[in-house]
Amino acid sequence: MTEPQPIRLVLADDQELVRLGFRMVLDAQADMTVVAEVGNGQDAVRAVSAPAGCDVVLMDIRMPIMDGVEATRRIVASGAAAKVLVLTTFDLDEYVYSALQAGASGFLLKDAGPAELLAGIRAVHSGEAVVAPSATRRLLERFVPMMPGDASTGKSPEERLGVLTEREREVLTLVGTGLTNSEIAQTLFLAEATVKTHIGHILAKLALRDRVGMVVFAYDTGLVLPQP
Rank of each mutant, 00 (worst) to 15 (best):
T153P: 01
R169I: 03
E141S: 12
L140Q: 05
R160C: 02
P133E: 07
L174E: 09
M146W: 06
S152C: 01
A129K: 14
M146G: 00
T153I: 00
R142V: 05
P157L: 02
T136P: 06
T136F: 05
G178I: 03
V131Q: 03
G127P: 05
P145E: 10
P148C: 08
G162V: 02
G120Y: 11
S134I: 09
S152M: 00
L139E: 04
A132E: 12
K155L: 14
R122P: 11
M146K: 15
L164R: 06
E183N: 09
A151G: 13
P145Q: 08
I184Q: 04
G120V: 06
L188D: 08
S152D: 06
E166T: 14
L174A: 11
E128P: 01
R169D: 02
G149H: 05
E166L: 10
E183H: 11
T173F: 09
G127N: 00
A119N: 15
E141D: 11
E141I: 02
V175K: 10
R137T: 12
E159F: 02
P133A: 09
L188S: 08
V175L: 13
T136C: 14
T165P: 04
R167D: 14
V130Q: 06
M147V: 14
V175Y: 03
E128K: 15
E128M: 12
D150Y: 05
L179F: 10
G176E: 05
E168R: 09
A119W: 09
A123R: 13
V131A: 08
A151I: 00
G176W: 03
S134T: 13
R142F: 10
I184G: 05
V163E: 08
P133K: 10
S156T: 15
T136G: 07
A151F: 01
L140I: 06
E159P: 04
R167I: 05
L188Q: 09
L174K: 03
T187D: 10
P148A: 07
M146F: 13
V144R: 06
E128F: 05
E168T: 08
T136S: 13
G149F: 04
E183I: 06
K155M: 11
G154T: 09
T165R: 11
E183M: 13
P148Y: 07
A132P: 01
R169K: 13
M146E: 14
A151Q: 04
L164V: 04
A135V: 09
E158M: 02
T136Y: 06
P133V: 10
S156A: 15
L172N: 04
A185G: 11
